[in-house]
Nucleic acid binder design. Structure first.
Lengths: 193, 193
DNA sequence: TAAAATTTAGTACCAGGTTCTAAAATCAAG
DNA sequence: CTTGATTTTAGAACCTGGTACTAAATTTTA
């Protein structure tokens, strides 16, 4: 009962479609030297949708990535929060956060987690970042979980509307990012975040 | 010769397709209360391709983004780039970038534009942010166009693998953000961005 | 060599269009 | 009001890249 030729062909078919999802059944007949019906039977068995469906799925995926990525109001999940004192958030580095070639997270995502947390920890209606001094200590890679810890520093006299927040981000034991944020409190003003 | 209804309809059509590229002509007839032929004439006049072509283009764009990394990794649209010298990018603040209550942009988006540009302007295979010193000069609001200008500073001797990039972001004439970035050049190392 | 599995062929049908021709409705003035 | 232009509809033929289904031909294997 060895039906290798069929299996082999189906494996090839999977590969062909994988590295060119825009191929039509027609083109596949040429490459695999079988009839179009065979191609279609194979696709059925393998659960591979037709060309148009494949394109639709890709288009949809890319479409709601654009919508859903920036939707995250706060980057990272806040797991502990003591207003005006400290806070902790967790953020896992995924495909969409890294340079695809290297798997290294783009800096602004790591920054975004820290910035979000710094703003969240300030107990105020609108808190906006005024300035920041940051350092990327080591690069963060795909799959790593970043744990950011924020501490609000006691206001050195005269710091009326501003609060200082220090944020340290760790992967495991290792510190990967450190930032000093100055965050505006809401005093109705028109300043940065 | 005022033909407003037609123009108005075409504008609506553009908008409808923009915020749901997956709409068929059929569905558009319902929403615009005109015949399908009118929809098609309008699409022709406006140069809007049919549904399938739109999906194909989205799929292709997202596909070769995965293959040809560099462009997607930039927040904002780069309009001018002189490697190792300077660069300009434009980024429009939209709904998804602001605090919904206040319409003020979240800091990390403004940072992301600057960071992306600072990394892009460095003529190197992998450039990663090492540190940054940033200041949000005034808050940026929904709908505003941020124009970021990056200048690579001459390496003060001994700056082997590091480059200094200054970025200034403007809305119109006004500077809204300023940052000094230190960017690692690829010398194969494992450090932040 | 006969039953089972596989491959090929062919037909009807579908969505979501394009292209083309032509009629109907609407408008803008003279 | 009527005429000429513009705009809107209608309809038929055709296209791509399929699905669904039936059936015959071929190959495999027991």
């Amino acid at each position: 009962m060895e039906r290798l030729p069929k299996k082999a062909r189906q494996q090839q078919l999977v590969k062909l479609i994988e590295d060119n999802p825009f191929v039509t059944d027609q083109e596949l007949t040429r490459q695999l030297k079988v009839s179009i019906q065979t191609i279609r039977l194979d696709r059925m068995e393998l659960g591979i949708p037709e060309l148009r469906e494949r394109m639709k799925q890709m288009a949809e995926r890319s479409y709601d990535q654009v919508r859903s990525l920036p939707l995250h109001e706060v980057i990272g999940e806040i797991v502990d929060l003591q207003l005006d004192k400290s806070g902790i958030s967790i953020f896992e580095i995924r495909e969409e956060h890294v340079f695809s070639r290297t798997g290294i997270a783009r800096g602004h995502h790591v920054f975004a987690q820290a910035n979000s947390l710094a703003v969240a920890v300030i107990n105020d209606e609108i808190a906006l970042t005024f300035s920041a001094d940051i350092r990327f200590i080591r690069s963060v890679h795909l799959g790593e979980k970043c744990i950011a810890k924020a501490y609000v520093r006691p206001p050195s006299s005269g710091g009326k509307g501003k609060a200082k927040v220090e944020v340290f981000t760790y992967v495991g034991e290792e510190m990967v990012f450190q930032g000093n944020f100055v965050v505006y409190r809401s005093t109705g003003d028109d300043n940065a975040n």
